Simulated scan of single mutants.
Amino acid sequence: MNALSPAMDVFSPSGPAPVLCDTTLRDGEQTAGVVFDLAERCAIASALDAAGVAEIELGVAAMGAAEIGAIRQIARGLVAASPLVWARARAEDIAAAHQTGVRRVHVAVPLSPCHLAGKLRVDADWARTQVRQLVSLATGMGLAVSVGAEDGSRTDPAFVAEIATIAAEAGAIRFRLADTLGVLDPFAAHDLVRRLVATQPLPIEFHAHNDLGLATANTLAAARAGASHLSVTVGGLGERAGNAALEEVAAVLAAQGRPTGVGLDRLVPLAEMVARAAGRPVPAAKPIVGPAVFSHESGIHVDGLLKDRTTYESAGLRPEVFGRAHRLVLGKHSGLAGVVHALREAGLRHDDAFARALLPMVRAEAERLKRALEPADLIRLARGLCPGAQGVAQS
């Protein structure tokens, strides 16, 4: 590309959009110390539904009668999204799922040697038998069944593929590969999913954890490898370091030209709702939904944005797409263009000479306060430098 050619984004479309399956109400609520009451669960499910999320995992029916009743109530409130219930590889879990009235159950089957031998004290033949029997049991109850490879990323890929084949033969509709401990990197995730997609008749869903900070990257790699369904949570909430974040996955896929049907302008209020219910405020720098992610202070960046937004704005990350806007703030790293802009916005004198004289004061005040300056701070500094600055706007 010629140095003076228009800037190009690196996003590139690759195949149809995957379907997002949100598990905020199941895996998200498994976050240590997080509890959603029934009203919050209903509100979150309705917000996910209204945002265009295709599938919502509502909970674990095996927790008892109260949970079964709660799942029933949440499911009744859904308009477009398909609900499902999570179950362990136990017949009683499937029976409990059936009592909810939800017509889809996901059965998670431990597959890694440490899970089979260490946790359950069983062998590989147990997993083979359970998948055959439980899928048949569930389909006999009229349930659609997906099967999940718990800790599949630490399991012999040949055994994972074998279990997927057994699940398909027994009547399952989908196979979920879980990176339960978040040990994969994007290259390994891509290779593992590509192998499954190439050899299995079932659609492949990918469920990532964020222990190494790679859940979103691994999920997108899985999508590039052919995973048709992606498991996510709002804000990346979930066990330990969390899961792949709904807002990040949806935003990237949309930027690639593979929109998932999720309304990007719904993501910020959705994240804020879940954060309030979880008692975990959205971090300022959280991609897409963080309150500070479209804020700019650095003189170089602010100068570029004011001249041409594309200098520091990707086509796939325009803030308006998410119902947001750029926010230019004054601080230690501000430059002349930022001070001129702030003075103009405040209705103050804003010629270059005045702004240049004010700039060191702005930086010093930001250092003293250890924060960005508010409009009142700027007005105070401007009046201190020139008592008549207010209302003496100049071009």
Rank of each mutant, 00 (worst) to 15 (best):
A7F: 14
A7K: 14
M8I: 15
D9C: 09
F11V: 10
P13I: 06
S14D: 14
G15Q: 07
L20R: 04
V34P: 03
A43V: 04
A45S: 04
A51R: 03
G52T: 07
V53F: 03
E55C: 03
A62N: 02
E67G: 09
P83F: 02
V85M: 00
A89N: 08
V102K: 07
A108P: 09
S112T: 06
S112L: 08
P113E: 12
H115F: 10
H115N: 09
A117R: 15
W126M: 02
R132A: 13
S136E: 15
L143T: 02
S146W: 08
I163W: 01
R176A: 13
A188F: 05
L192S: 11
V193S: 01
V193T: 01
V197A: 06
P201S: 14
P203C: 02
A208E: 00
D211C: 04
A215Q: 07
A215Y: 09
T216G: 08
T216L: 05
A221Y: 09
A221R: 06
A222S: 11
S231P: 03
R240W: 06
L253N: 05
A254W: 08
T260R: 07
E272F: 01
V274I: 02
A275R: 12
K286N: 00
P291Y: 04
I300M: 11
G304P: 05
D308N: 14
E313M: 14
V321P: 01
F322H: 00
G323E: 06
A337E: 13
V339E: 10
A342E: 02
L343G: 10
R349Y: 03
R349G: 04
R349V: 00
R356Y: 07
A366F: 04
E374G: 02
P375Q: 05
C386H: 14
G388L: 13
